[in-house]
Design a binder for these strands. Sequence first.
DNA 1: GTCTATAGGGCGATAGAC
DNA 2: GTCTATCGCCCTATAGAC
Lengths: 206, 206
Amino acid sequence: MSSVTLPKVEPVPRMRAEDRRELVLTAATAVFGERGYVGATTDAVARAAGVSQPYVVRMFGTKEALFLEVLGRALERLIDSFTSAIDENPTATPEDLHHRIGAAYADLLMDRGLLLSLMHGFVLGADPVIGAAARSGFLQVYRLLRHRGGFSAKEAADFLAGGMLLNTLVGIRMADDIDDADARELIESVAPTKSELLVRLSRTRP
Amino acid sequence: MSSVTLPKVEPVPRMRAEDRRELVLTAATAVFGERGYVGATTDAVARAAGVSQPYVVRMFGTKEALFLEVLGRALERLIDSFTSAIDENPTATPEDLHHRIGAAYADLLMDRGLLLSLMHGFVLGADPVIGAAARSGFLQVYRLLRHRGGFSAKEAADFLAGGMLLNTLVGIRMADDIDDADARELIESVAPTKSELLVRLSRTRP
DNA sequence: GTCTATAGGGCGATAGAC
DNA sequence: GTCTATCGCCCTATAGAC
């Protein structure tokens, strides 16, 4: 009797490994962006992705490896997006390119976790593994602007500076203080054409 | 015999509470700057200050309260420093002031932990307590530039953008890649007059 | 004013079943 | 491919002695 093989329903939908991987990476990007590398738990990632905590670890080996993968993905999207903006406008002037790449950057902000995960990586430069990855990624972006985008050193630095301020305003959730006149002015002067977007994205509860 | 009161040597030097407090706050600033709010442990702070871990907690109540105190101190020094730069040059043009306050900012970088602790606070905007403190502090600086420094909205935003890039380069330890031509160029174009300082400060092992 | 000892909770990772 | 159970570490905070 106990040896009868019963038909079993799968309580959790199975997925191709690659699809599940994408799902977890997306969830991880959001969680790392919100809480940072150390503050994020593999359990929070697992919940956000609808899988068990040990499965997240099983998939990526360690939390550090997962974070590195998130960083790599974010960087890849950033580079792809900038590269497209550059290559689609081969005759653009530097100022023109600055605006176009800036627009591409603002589009990336749609995924708040993406840029914020990068930011969290940037402030962990003292970590031998994460710091090295962050430096390498930041330099890749600089090189892209400088050598493929034709930016001067100053133009590239100015562009990056604006990006860092934008990231900071999103990270700090400046739009939570949107009723404050100065906060509103700051947000609108940083992202004049995208301030609506920035406000939505930099709110604690979007 | 056992009731004889023996003279006792103090194994650990006693200090006035206020002095010890300063010592711990200085240590905490360095540790939080290096590892962030979550990554820093009260034990690491205690070791850096040469006291026991429970004593650190006893002094500030919680790790969160300690971090808030570090943030408050950092902000205070930033504001004081900017205010001095402004008030000492009442007839300076906006560009002039930009340079003078920029120089004051670079001086603050001498204490790497100071600005980096702030940066770690800035990316934790989602935290109800720390996020609120970080927003309030960031806005105070903006108001100072705008209303006491006489900066336009754009000038203030540009100044802050440069500051965020500077902080990021220090946080990411960009100078660890100083042998890379692009990294060197970026550092020198961001801090032309202070690149030596920036290099020293943004190295993992200073 | 400062320490030692330790409780208590959370988290990353492993083992192993299905 | 995915889960449950659980180990062992680390970390904050408390208790209490000196």
